[in-house]
Design a protein around this nucleic acid. Structure first.
Lengths: 243, 243
DNA sequence: CGGCTACTTGACCGGTATCAATGTTAGTGG
DNA sequence: CCACTAACATTGATACCGGTCAAGTAGCCG
């Protein structure tokens, strides 16, 4: 029995062999804890490690000159984060714990060993990184080419859809531990305007809000408004089947 | 002597062994030609192949409802494109030839074979895909959090910087075969506003324009305006050295 | 020469940002 | 449990960036 978050995630894509599971479990032997709001790793700092997020929410962001910030990705348990240090000797983004978090650091040498010893897992990691790239493509299109309201809708949908992967497919409501300023930094808006858009979404009957909990009331209309595509539903790993 | 575009690109990162070079060269045995403006692959069409771009410029885009388009990436010789089909059985984006192009298609089986037989190359592909992701992160920040003028400046800089990789580091001017509408779709602006911003950049003495050729006059100021980071310059593959 | 397609320009509009004030909630220490 | 405080959410007034619409111009290719 493994309690490797990463192995659980990967097994959603592919049935893993015992050897593969064992290797993955070893990656999570070291654990590090971070408190809510704590910075895990600072942009531009030297970094040759990446992290498996074992518990909690985190996000990454890029800081631009004087007070501008772009949140790049929300990270959920099972996500591999801080992967930019694979390509650079330093961090291209800042990682911050949204809630209390448990992380498992690994270094590049471990990544190389994984690719050398379990090329199928390496290929799977490559596949997943491509899927995440597509997800970033969608975000880019959302921010570049849709209205404020659609962008907020798309972010909320993405959160719910990803939350479901680990917590059950029939979930409608999520406690979102982000401030409206965070949501603004993720969608390229101001917190003031995020507030107005969320009120409009409520008024339209697409969502309801209670404190930080957001519930999807009319998912179909929300998907249409956001022009959202659920990529996670169509991932195809058939060509990796059979070790 | 190889004429594999891809091998040349990868050898910028790492000194390749003969066996690795030979394997890469085999990937480019099939070539397919596309004319300027021709669509290589349509969004949502079934697709289990990806392409090495051997010659010419191409780009990928996502189409959103009624007439909205987000250009995702410009592709230059040596780039691997259409990689979304690795994770999905279909294309998440449309690929189009900007100029006449030569492409080498490969399928997912070939990718898996590459990872199995040359895990170091697999790791390198993973590394490169992470570097490209960071580059997308920068674009996201540019579009989400900077002004129209900065976005156009960032796109121009990115084109010049990437063009230099294959064509010489001292280049200042590039013939850009994109319409202003294309540039708008890449930066999240309208063609009309792109036009205004490019005129401003000229007026400010940062660039000069002659037909479709753009010349960088004051790179330092342009970098500052765009808040541009040249990631290509800091890629670190030292941990892959030694097979 | 004619008919595209793309670029340029100007007038005007609307969506989102900005600024500022107030209300609300969560956290802290007494 | 309450008072105090800081952070966050909400609301309104106003400004401005970039979009929209429309017309005119310039290249380009048959």
């Amino acid at each position: 029995m493994t309690n490797s978050c990463f192995a659980v995630r990967l097994s959603h894509f592919l049935e893993l062999t015992d050897a593969e599971e064992k290797t993955l479990a070893r990656l999570e032997e070291n654990r590090r804890h971070f408190k809510r709001g704590e910075i895990i790793r600072e942009q531009d700092s030297p970094a040759d490690e990446l992290f498996i997020l074992n518990g909690g929410w985190a996000f990454s962001y890029i800081r631009l000159g004087d007070h501008k910030r772009q949140i790049l990705r929300l990270e959920f348990p099972g996500d591999l984060m801080g992967t930019s240090s694979i390509a650079f000797g330093h961090a291209s983004d800042t990682l911050v714990a949204v809630t209390d978090c448990v992380l498992c650091p690994l270094d590049r040498v471990a990544v190389r060993a994984l690719f050398d010893e379990h090329s199928r897992l390496g290929t799977l990691l490559f596949l997943i990184s491509q899927a995440e790239r597509v997800s970033m493509d969608d975000r880019l299109a959302s921010i570049g080419r849709t209205s404020a309201k659609s962008r907020v809708a798309a972010l909320l949908l993405d959160i719910v859809v990803r939350y479901r992967i680990m917590n059950g497919e029939d979930l409608k409501g999520v406690e979102i531990p982000l401030t409206q300023e965070d949501i603004g930094d993720a969608t390229g808006l101001t917190s003031v305007h995020v507030n107005r858009m969320m009120q409009e979404l409520s008024r339209d009957g697409l969502i309801s809000r209670n404190r930080h909990e957001v519930t999807i009331l009319d998912e179909e209309k929300l998907v249409e408004l956001a022009e959202y595509v659920n990529r996670y539903a169509t991932i195809d790993t058939s060509w990796l089947k059979g070790s």
